[in-house]
């Protein structure tokens, strides 16, 4: 279902210019770097860190929907579990932050391996329902498991010292780490998408029987993409639990899975920069509308409906279509 409506557009100058980016993408990438470098001096760093955690989460989700055509409706499971693992290992085991984040990502990937292995047996709508159901199972597990702290969650998680020297309890230091991890994840996804492996993924998205007939074991490719996506979602969740010092059930609940779908949809499914912009829009909106309580849910629902009915390319997709470049 990816790249909706793109078929009618002729894109200019598609060839790789730098790092696999086209010229237009290099411009967008430079703007992104500039934003990351300048924004903490003008905006509240904790807000920016939240934004970047969700942007990484949305990029991970978009890897599946945008480039393999798999709609996972249960990505909260990997995000939330990553958060719990990072939080637990940092607080109870006293692991340094870099190690606890890596562990969060690894556990997210392992969970993705198990769930993905079962879920890729079905396609399309069934795949979405199965991933959602398994995520709910993970949620119930987290409600009962002793290490998650149940309804209270894991609280006062220490940020610690990065590599033993950089004090992350200072917001600016934590921000640079978050920005670095986001950028690394962003580039990794970009690299994956433009690798031969990524080409096979796209061919599965376009026509799976054809890819099979060309001799590719499509299930293996899909599972690999699923594991990568779940692992990055776990890293994003781990970062978030360090930023806020708390890991709770909210992050494993199905509403979180819905939010990451919304971010990618608003930004533009199957675009490289869409998930970042979508996350920025949704997080900013939540920030300003926080006082309206349950109306936030209603507004998110309205955005869902509007995007699906009238705005399927998303923000970045529309901009790209207007400029006739693929962003």
């Amino acid at each position: 279902m990816a790249a909706p409506g793109f078929s009618g557009t002729e894109f200019r100058n598609e060839e790789a210019f730098f790092l696999g980016f086209s010229q237009a993408q290099v411009v967008a990438f430079v703007l992104l770097i500039a934003f990351l470098a300048i924004s903490p001096f003008f905006l509240y760093p904790v807000f920016l860190m939240k934004l970047l955690c969700f942007a990484l989460f949305a990029c991970a989700f978009n890897l599946l929907i945008g480039y393999v055509g798999l709609l996972s409706f249960g990505h909260a499971a990997y995000f939330g579990m990553g958060g719990y693992i990072t939080g637990y290992t940092a607080k109870v085991w006293g692991l340094p932050p870099e190690l606890s984040i890596v562990l969060g990502g690894l556990v997210g990937a392992a969970l993705g391996l198990v769930i993905g292995w079962i879920a890729i047996r079905r396609q399309g709508i069934y795949f979405a329902m199965i991933t959602l159901a398994f995520a709910q199972m993970v949620y119930f597990f987290c409600v009962q498991a002793p290490f998650t702290g149940g309804e209270d969650g894991i609280q006062s998680i220490p940020r610690g010292f990065f590599l033993g020297i950089v004090d992350l309890s200072r917001d600016m230091n934590m921000y640079w780490l978050t920005a670095g991890v986001f950028l690394a994840g962003f580039l990794l996804i970009h690299r994956i998408v433009h690798s031969p492996f990524g080409m096979v993924l796209k061919s599965i998205r376009e026509n799976e029987p054809r890819a099979t007939s060309l001799g590719y074991r499509t299930d293996d490719y899909k599972l690999m993409a699923f594991v990568l996506s779940a692992g990055l979602a776990g890293v994003a969740g781990g970062l978030k639990s360090l930023v806020f010092g708390i890991a709770t059930l909210t992050d494993v609940f199905w509403t979180m899975s819905g939010e990451v779908v919304l971010m990618s949809l608003v930004g533009g499914l199957g675009t490289i920069f869409g998930p970042f912009l979508g996350a920025a829009v949704i997080i900013t909106m939540q920030n300003y509308l926080a006082e309206f309580g349950a109306w936030v849910t209603v507004i998110q629902g309205v955005i869902f409906v509007l995007c699906v009915l009238a705005f399927r390319r998303g923000l970045v997709g529309e901009i790209g279509n207007w400029l006739r470049v693929r962003l």
């Binding site: 909706p4 629902g301 009915l309």
Partner: peptide, 20 residues
């Protein structure tokens, strides 16, 4: 369109109804 859009639309409708 792709059937997944129906899922996304009705998910949004569900959020609106529940929120109201």
């Amino acid at each position: 369109l792709d059937h997944l859009y129906g899922l996304l639309l009705t998910f949004g409708l569900g959020l609106i109804i529940e929120g109201i």
